[in-house]
Simulated scan of single mutants.
Amino acid sequence: MAGKILITGGSGLIGSRLSEMLIDQGYEVAHLSRSPDKYSHYKTFRWDVQAGSLDENAITYADYIIHLAGAGLADEKWTKERKREILRSRVDSSQLLYKGLQQQKHRVKAFISASAIGIYGDSGDQLMSEESTYGEDFMAEVCKAWEASVWPIKDLGIRTVILRTGIALSEKGGALPQMARPVKLMAGAPFGSGKQYMSWIHMDDLCRLYIRAIEDTQFAGVYNAVAPHPVTNQEFTEALAEVMHKPLVLPKVPSFALNMMLGEMSAVVLSGQRVSANKVLQTGFTFEYNYLDEALESFYKNQQS
């Protein structure tokens, strides 16, 4: 049943792991890139979101499109300029793909886009489902605009799936190495109150979910891409220290210190989302990593302290 998958953001953390897993399952994979690298493992088509240009061969190549592109949230401080880039990179890229699909003959069967659980804002310990109300902060606004830019693709008669991703755990990047570094140095501590919820998902489960969304036509609409058992920031930090065999010596990192270091971006660390995985579970999808300790052990169990 394998086919040709076109991935935007294919060289990012999720995109690179997903590409490997798709190849392992017999799919052909191509990436859309602003600067195609002739040494890339993957067939690469050129696009330039700012210039609004897209190689039309990319659209005719694809059986499925997976849309992960967007400026990284933690790469730089959130200046006004950077915030505009975080928003525009997601919205403009979706609109460019929509235009390509609208204008060209293609055989795209499904369009699967990333979004984020940040759409729920800081929701405390309330369990959020796909139908829950949205937040009002910057990240929630970005996610709302991002999803709104994807939905018109459904009107082209293409099955459209949006996966609202939690904190994707990988030892190769993202939040986990940043949280593990102070723990390794015996300076680990929960952030802020430590009570804020973290809805996480193991990178391999996330990629398996993308592949499932390609293969299983019952997938349509919005799904939370999170493991079934969210934890608080304090529980996360304690589990990490345990699996790394390190003590937690410090008290909690105060909010004002995080604000000084990260500026507005600290909201991502200090606000919590407790998000339900029920809708995904009801499709029959099974998580390989249901509990945080299993997920963390998969990354750190072989590391000697």
Rank of each mutant, 00 (worst) to 15 (best):
Q303Y: 14
A189N: 00
H245D: 10
M128L: 14
M179H: 06
F191M: 15
E215F: 02
G166S: 05
L73G: 01
G124R: 09
L22A: 04
Y210T: 02
S35N: 13
I65Q: 07
L68V: 10
P36H: 11
R212C: 14
S94D: 06
F191N: 13
Q50A: 15
I117N: 09
C143P: 11
A145Q: 15
L73E: 01
Y42Q: 06
H31D: 03
S113W: 07
Q178R: 15
Q273P: 04
L270N: 01
S123P: 08
S193H: 04
G118F: 02
R107P: 11
L96P: 05
S53T: 15
V275S: 03
A114I: 02
L250N: 08
S305T: 14
T60Q: 14
V150K: 09
T283L: 10
I14P: 09
I112V: 15
Y42E: 09
D137L: 10
M139S: 14
F236P: 03
V183S: 09
D48L: 11
S40R: 02
V275W: 07
N302P: 03
L87N: 05
G3Y: 01
T8Q: 11
I14H: 06
W151Y: 11
E235S: 12
P177W: 13
K105C: 08
D63F: 02
F236K: 05
R208Y: 11
K105L: 14
Q104P: 00
G9K: 12
V91N: 07
P254H: 01
P228H: 06
M1L: 01
P254N: 00
I86Q: 04
D155K: 13
I14D: 07
L96S: 07
G188A: 06
G263T: 04
L32C: 13
G10Y: 12
S255Q: 12
M128F: 11
L296K: 14
V222D: 03
N302R: 15
E147G: 12
R84H: 13
Y98D: 07
S199Q: 12
P230T: 12
S33H: 00
G121S: 09
V243F: 04
M179Q: 12
S19P: 03
V231Q: 05
S94Y: 06
L97Y: 10
L97M: 15
Y39W: 01
L18S: 01
L18P: 05
A187M: 15
L73C: 00
P254S: 09
P36S: 02
W146A: 02
K83E: 07
M128R: 12
R88T: 15
D125G: 02
S193T: 14
S115N: 14
E131R: 05
L54H: 01
R181C: 00
A225Y: 00
I214H: 00
F299P: 02
M128E: 11
Q282D: 14
V280W: 04
I158K: 04
L68K: 03
H245Q: 08
S193L: 01
I59G: 13
Q178P: 13
S40H: 01
D293V: 07
T160K: 08
S35V: 03
